[in-house]
Structures are given as C-alpha cells and as structure tokens.
Design a protein around this nucleic acid. Sequence first.
RNA 1: GGGGGCGUGGUGUAGCGGCUAACAUGCGGCCCUGUCAAGGCCGAGAUCGCGGGUUCGAACCCCGUCGCUCCCGCCA
Length: 439
Amino acid sequence: MERTLIGDLRSKIGQSVTVQGWLQVLRDQKKMQFLVLRDQTGAVQIVVEKAASPDQAALISTCGVESALTITGKVIDNPIVKLGGIEMQLESIEVNNNAAIPLAFEPFNDTLPALDFRMDWRYLELRRPENLLIFKIQTTAEMAMREFWLKNGFIEIHSPKMVGTPSEGGAELFSLDYFGRPAYLAQSPQFYKQMAMAAGFERVFEIGPAFRADPSFTSRHMTEFISIDAEISWIDSHEDVMSMQERLLQYTYQKVKDAHGDEIKARFGIDITVPTLPFPRLTMAEAQQILKERNYSVPADKKGDLDPGGERELGQYIKEKYNHEFVFLKDWPIEVRPFYHMRHADNPKLTKSYDLIAKGLEITTGAQREHRRDILEKQALDKGLNLDILSGYLDYFKFGCPAHGGFGMGLSRLLMVMLGLESVREAVFVFRGPNRLEP
RNA sequence: GGGGGCGUGGUGUAGCGGCUAACAUGCGGCCCUGUCAAGGCCGAGAUCGCGGGUUCGAACCCCGUCGCUCCCGCCA
C-alpha cells in the first residue's frame, strides 16, 4: 500500500492507510495499546485492542521506542484524542527495525546529554525536529544562494581538494601521501577561484569543503567545514564584492524566512530579520576609534586587528546604532592581511579588504585581489614568501587577468548566527575537530 | 599552543572531610486505567575518570595524568 504522510491523515478519515515512521511512545496497557508514530510531518496515535489482535499486540510489546515501523490502519476522527483529535485503528504492523532497549540516550527528553556524548550518537539527536529544521534551512539557504547567483550570471565551479602546493603558510595544512609524494588538503578554493577569473569565467561560486589543521578548541572552529565562496571580475574595488555579498545575504534571509520563519520562531524563538541594504560599513580605523570610545581595549599586540571580544562589542554597537545584525569591517592594515589582497592606491598601508561580522561573529573575509603580477610578486616578497612555491599561482596573472575580488563565508557559522545556536557543532551535520574524527 | 572550569548509576544533576552516596529521567516487575507530559507501588543499576599523597577517616583536600568544555591565540 502506498505510504501516507502523517501530516496528511486529516484528509483520509474513514480510509485504511499505511504510515511509516518512528515509535515515539508506547503505552502498553492491559487491554489496549496506544502507540504514537512520528514522521517528518507529524505524529499520530495508533490504537490496538489486544483481544482483537493478540499476535500483533505481543509483537508491539517487544518494540522499544524509536523503532522504525510500518503501520496500516483505519483513520478515525476522534476529538477525545489530544494529539490532533485523530487516531488510527491498527490493521497490521511491520517492524522494519526494532530499537534496542535502552536507547543510548533519549533524544526527546527535556534534559539532554552533553554535546560531546550526543555526537557519538549523532543520528539519534538529529531525529529531534529542531535539528531536522536546521538542515531544511541549510538546504533552503544553499538553494537561495545558487538561485541568486544563477540569476546574476555566475558559473559554479568545483575546485580540487587535493593539492600539491600549500597556498600560503603551511602550518595549518593536512598532509597526505599521494603515490609517494606529498600532497595536502585544500584550505580554501581561493587560488582556483582566481584561476577561474584568469580563465574569463568572470563570475563564479563554489560551495565545498575546506580543511584546516588548526588545533582550535572553540565553539566556532572545525577542521573540515563548508566554505561558501564567490569571485567576480572587472571590479573597481572591494566595495563591489561587499555589494554583491549583501544582496546575496538579503536574498537568502528572505527565502529562509518565507520557507521557515514561523517554524524557526516556534523552535528557536528567533525572528528572522531580513537585513536591510546597504549593510553598515566601518573602516578598521573607525572601528578602533569606536571601541576606544566605548572603553573596550583591544590587546596591544593586535596591531590594527581585532580580538573576538572587540568583534562582539562592535556587533553590539551596530545593533544599538543601526539596529542591524551585520557590519562590514573594511580597509584592514597590510600587516594582518595576506599578500594577495590589493592595497589602496592612495594608502599603501591599507588593503582593499573586509570582514563581515554577523551578530559579533566573523563569518567572512573578502577582498579585491592584486592582479598585477609585478606588484603581487613584490607583496609576496614583502611577506617573506618563496616565489618558487607560488610560481603556479603567479602564472595566473601572466596572460591577461582582469581586476577581481571575492569572499569566503563559513556555511555553519552563517547558520549558527542566523538561528542563534551556541556552537557550530550543532549547525553541522557531522562535526570534525582536532579530537573528533568519528562518526 | 597558553589559561580557566568540569569529570558521581545508561543519561542529567545533588552531595564538597564522618552515608547503607541522594534526586530526576530511563530500564525491569506488579497494580490501575481509552491512555495521551499517564498514575501508583516495588526493584535492578555508581568501588564517585585513573594513579599517588594528606588524614583516624577522602566523592569531597593536595599532586600527577587522561578526557571533555570554555576563553585566548588563529580563523570561516
């Protein structure tokens, strides 16, 4: 028999239908059994008269909660039933996969085990509707971004994740053996996006994994994460990149709000605010001044950079002054930016770069890239880098590369901020960290 | 990598020098019941992360160690 979704049962009253899902509750009484079966669309009570079907009743008694069941029965309108005023009378049941007793933990309890323990049994935790919702939202958000980019003439690329040369630095690279020679997991699609610019793709995006061998133990770091990247050509400055990104985020927030706004409010207590354009912008110099006025002292060794506390303070300032969740922090000093960020023509100490801070959390770095090979080489040498290692990259700028720039944004960080989650570990399907390689 | 915090039945917590280690939830049994956050009674389940020390006495204090976690560094 064809499967009926539990959410559609109201329209099937009087009919015999088949539902499939997980056993939420079993109330096993002397004469009767009441089961609550849950699927993604809802939950329904199933009644069993033990005397009428003793064999099935005996089978049901062996079922642990969270067992996967297929149940056929007649849909009855019954106002007495608190669960939707509807129930099913059992006709037949198939136990697809019994759940062992006891469960590793009870995913629907009021109190849950610590996050680290839950991660050992991630699939159980993901059965909670609010967790399911996170990934429905992620799906909507990614689709919205693709939609936005396609409407604006972007091409999707998939850059290699196994690379032969480190893009820069090297301390945070995972290395692997590639048929006897060293290889690395890509930290970023950065250079390949730029290669696409040199190829004349003009506008590209990629949503894919990035790997960082940083032993960072924070609520916002992962060793493998999904990076949302975009790169555009023929720009005048990093302002063009920010303009594209803010429109992208506005579009994405609107789509998420349209599709899930009510459920997000119900599950997370958060009103999705579609950001207004333009996002507030501050130069780093202005940001430093504002922090000083607010008596927030950035550690002396930061040299024009910000610490996470400063970012949170700035997020609070933007909220108060502009009632906005986002702020572009732009024009960072060259000391704290990589060699390939373009510098201001009228101020060689400042880069044409930005970070996007969302509710006080850094979720993006973007910039106009330096596309003039001779200047790029000079900037690399200034940073003490070896031009031989970079030669493949520098060759992108040998045969006609347009001015360009782009950004990288952490998908899970975006979701974390959007939904007010405490940790990226909740916002990612399966977490990877320095001490977490399973499941 | 640096600093702080925490490790007590399956899970979440209480206890912080003198207990047969408590409570909730889950699990098992019985009773009751068209139940529905079900209810009632009974029961099993913890050598209090591990090792050492202080003490008449340690879950509790000290040292070490491992694990987790948060903050910083670094970043998306």
